[in-house]
């Protein structure tokens, strides 16, 4: 920054804007580097542990939600095991779907498409 100052001050605001844009572009390429490359969900942790944790959270959260909804419906409608049995399966499937969205092949363009 300090090195490239001075000089061609024809319209200082314009050159500052241009430099700012260039800097931001650089920043944009730098800060979330994952967004261009192996993006998945936006440059999130790419270490094995990070991916593992992320997959686990995605997988389990849908299941938790399924259990919660199923239990709640059963509690409300007094239909003991019907809805919880149904929603555990649906929640598990939704968890797998989440993981597929995250890691599955051919998902990049959809995720990243702009």
């Amino acid at each position: 920054m300090s090195g490239t100052e001075g000089g061609q001050g024809s319209s200082e605001g314009e050159s500052f804007d241009a430099r700012l844009r260039a800097a931001r572009e650089r920043q944009g390429l730098e800060a979330p580097p994952g967004t261009s490359g192996r993006s998945d969900a936006g440059g999130l942790p790419t270490s094995a542990l990070g991916i593992g944790l992320r997959v686990a959270v995605e997988l389990v959260s849908a299941l938790i939600l399924g259990v919660a909804i199923g239990w709640g419906l059963d509690h409300w409608l007094h239909t003991a095991p019907v809805f919880i049995a149904l929603f555990v399966l649906l929640g598990g499937a939704a968890g797998v779907l989440n993981v597929w969205r995250l890691m599955g092949p051919g998902q990049r363009p959809r995720d990243r498409g702009d």
Binding site: S61, I64, L65
Partner: peptide, 13 residues
């Protein structure tokens, strides 16, 4: 239902 659950599971995750 699976898609809706998947959508709502974002809250939890």
């Amino acid at each position: 239902p699976i898609e809706i659950l998947s959508y709502l599971s974002r809250i939890i995750s």
